[in-house]
Simulated assay, not measured.
Amino acid sequence: MAKLLQGKVAIVTGAGAGLGRAHAIELARHGAHVVVNDIAGSEDGAAARAVAAEIQRTGGQAMACTGDVTRFDDMQAMADRAIAKWGRIDILVNNAGVLRDRTFAKLTLDDFRWVMDVHVMGAVHCTKAVWPHMQAQKFGRIVMTTSSSGLYGNFGQSNYGAAKMALVGLMQTLALEGAKYDIRVNCLAPSAATAMTKDLLPAEVLARLTPEHVSPGVVALVHSDAPTRMILLAGAGSFECANITMTRGVFIEELATSAEQLIGCLDEVKSRVGEVVPGAGWDQYKLEIDKATSKV
């Protein structure tokens, strides 16, 4: 049976350990040639080289490529290496990330900027480096790694949450701009065991919260018939979908008393009966204009 990603070329950032390592191995298992990216670190990329070697030992094709996602020149050099070796880039998994957890009151601006720089600008740099190649070949699959912290909030993670929600916005627009080139862009929100969950969950639950239980979601988001603009949640072998929706809302005609009227009907504004998933930002304007003109 043909493999889902046979001959495709994939880049996975932050792939020296954890989720990135699991994603790289799973993509290779399905036939992709994988660029295993990680920051050089104190051992000059030993982690990335180990993952690439692991893939090669099982008959896959992989190469390690160290580089810092916060430096565009590093990401451009990585894309150039992939093109030189395999002639194309089909898949990008923006996985690299960092944490600097503190309540907003105690969080320094430097730590806020650093998390935004790694997650948001890191994804921008990587995507910018591969985008022209995907346009030229009229095929591309890009995964942004978002988080429940961005989608729903998490105490002590204002910087991380802001960065992860920013990636959803980036995904929404890039999917629209890439559609005519068959570049499909999606988000993955993974759940995996961390030091934070170690004392909160029983051992049998933690045993399922492994990166390997998340990575099939990456394959589902990058194969030839993949969706686009999907926010896929994944953890412990379970998969869900999140949506940014818009309610039907209300129309208030009298400007002079609109604030008072709105305060009195916020429950109706929040009602999810008849809510929709907008296809683009213009859908908000259209809904509001349609309601306004229908009252004229």
Rank of each mutant, 00 (worst) to 15 (best):
A189Y: 06
P278R: 02
R184I: 00
A203D: 15
A163N: 03
A220M: 07
G169R: 12
E275M: 07
I231N: 07
V218Q: 12
A280R: 14
E253L: 01
A192Q: 13
G264K: 10
V276F: 09
M230C: 12
Q261P: 00
M246W: 05
A179T: 01
L232F: 03
T194C: 10
A166M: 07
N243C: 07
V168Y: 13
H223E: 13
L266A: 14
V277P: 00
S191V: 13
A256R: 08
A193I: 01
I183Y: 03
P227C: 11
S271T: 01
C241V: 15
A162M: 08
I263C: 09
A175Y: 04
I183C: 03
N186W: 09
S271L: 02
E254S: 08
L266D: 05
L262S: 11
G235D: 03
L176C: 06
L206G: 08
P190G: 01
S258E: 11
S158M: 08
L262E: 03
T257P: 01
V185K: 03
F251I: 06
T197Q: 07
A226E: 11
L266K: 13
A207K: 12
E254V: 02
E275F: 04
E204S: 11
P216G: 11
E268R: 14
L232G: 02
L233H: 02
D267M: 11
A179H: 09
Q172L: 15
A163G: 05
F251Q: 04
M230D: 02
V277Y: 00
A163F: 06
P202T: 09
L266I: 15
D267I: 08
V222P: 04
D182L: 01
V219M: 09
H223Y: 13
G178M: 02
A234F: 02
L266H: 10
L209Q: 14
Y160G: 04
K198N: 07
P227E: 08
L167Q: 15
R184H: 07
E268C: 02
G249R: 06
D283H: 11
L200H: 04
A189G: 10
T228P: 12
V269K: 14
H213Y: 14
M246V: 12
T228E: 12
G279I: 00
T194R: 06
A256S: 15
G169I: 08
L174K: 06
N243M: 07
E177N: 01
L200Y: 03
A192V: 14
Y181V: 00
L221T: 09
G156I: 09
L170F: 15
R229G: 04
M246T: 05
V218H: 12
P202E: 12
D199L: 05
A162T: 14
L206F: 02
A236Y: 01
Q157P: 05
G169P: 10
G237W: 03
V276T: 15
N186E: 08
K180S: 13
S238R: 13
A259H: 11
E240V: 00
A166Q: 07
E240G: 15
E240M: 14
L209E: 13
C241L: 14
A220E: 10
D283E: 14
L232S: 01
V185Q: 05
V277M: 06
V269T: 10
R229F: 01
A226I: 11
F251G: 00
C265E: 15
I252T: 03
P190E: 08
A280F: 07
A166S: 15
N186R: 07
G264L: 13
M196H: 04
R208W: 05
T197S: 15
K164P: 01
I252E: 04
V214F: 11
C241G: 03
